[in-house]
Nucleic acid binder design. Sequence first.
DNA 1: CAAGAAGTGTCAATTAAACAACAGATTTTA
DNA 2: TAAAATCTGTTGTTTAATTGACACTTCTTG
Lengths: 180, 180
Amino acid sequence: MTTHKKQDPRSIRSKRVFKEAAVDILIENPDISKLTVQKIAQRAELNRATFYLHFLDINDLLKQVVYDIFDDLLSKMSPTLQIDNLNNQEQLITFLDYFYKHRKILAVLFEHPGFIKKMHKTLKDLIVIQRKSEGADTSEITLSMDILASSILGIIMWWLRNGVHFSSEYIASQIIELYR
Amino acid sequence: MTTHKKQDPRSIRSKRVFKEAAVDILIENPDISKLTVQKIAQRAELNRATFYLHFLDINDLLKQVVYDIFDDLLSKMSPTLQIDNLNNQEQLITFLDYFYKHRKILAVLFEHPGFIKKMHKTLKDLIVIQRKSEGADTSEITLSMDILASSILGIIMWWLRNGVHFSSEYIASQIIELYR
DNA sequence: CAAGAAGTGTCAATTAAACAACAGATTTTA
DNA sequence: TAAAATCTGTTGTTTAATTGACACTTCTTG
């Protein structure tokens, strides 16, 4: 059990503001190579030196952004997973709504090396958790989950790429239809 | 000539954030008597004690908010006043657009004692500046300007009270028609 | 109306952010 | 490609914000 020393609210805020600033800039201009610490600090209205109190470099910040997104996603998913009478479709819609809400930064991050792989792993884990909660045999589920995760990820990426013309409800119903 | 010592960006930001927080709270709940330093600090994500580094009390903050608004208004008006071929109507529309943009906080501030009086003075000054730029005799203009300012202020207050159903262009044309 | 809750204004001590300067790396552009 | 401009990562020092406490006043509500 790690003891987290209580953080100064200034630190908490600064970390958040730096990340928000970076995300905002990336949404305006998705070219990560054009992102600089100076621009982030400027947008965050914080000193450039302060950046280095919280992050090693831009890549470290982006990793934390990615981590935050997954953390947020998991915190949104787990409560619903604990409700027994919730069916697949409702969970899937929660999942898709999350993607819709964060579609702009996700579209940028999908271009980021390593993100898709991490996304895949998280998605698979979520599917495994779900299947287990449905009482499936542990030995049978792990095998085909990669393929299933890949398919869903492919659909999501297509969905995001194409400007999200369809509702999350419709996509959910299509995914369920496909893997019935 | 007062020498302004260059301010720390943290101070500048804190002052701004406190004011924004107060305005936000007032727009949500226009009852000034319900506004507290604690709520402002909480909304601003700053410590309550920090508030007192920048403001004497809530009233002092509100005075500064009022001042900022007028400062902003005057900076928006003066450039147009210097353009010779600009007519009354265009100036009036600039003026009215400003009110439209800030209508929410202005609706709150119009309830604030002293605001209408200050508003009146500023409006009169603007009218006087305008009349002078039109080459009017200095002795003739000051007298009826109070009545004129009161009328325009009355129209603006009515306009704001009634949910701004009409465009600033239409109101401008009506005001000009009235005082032709 | 009495008691608890919430808000005020202030303080000394602590901590995080700003500053400014630096050498060196990278990118732009003439 | 050479020069200029921008960006990087780091540092010691200064300054503003946080903290938690304090005595006091003003709501709020049973």
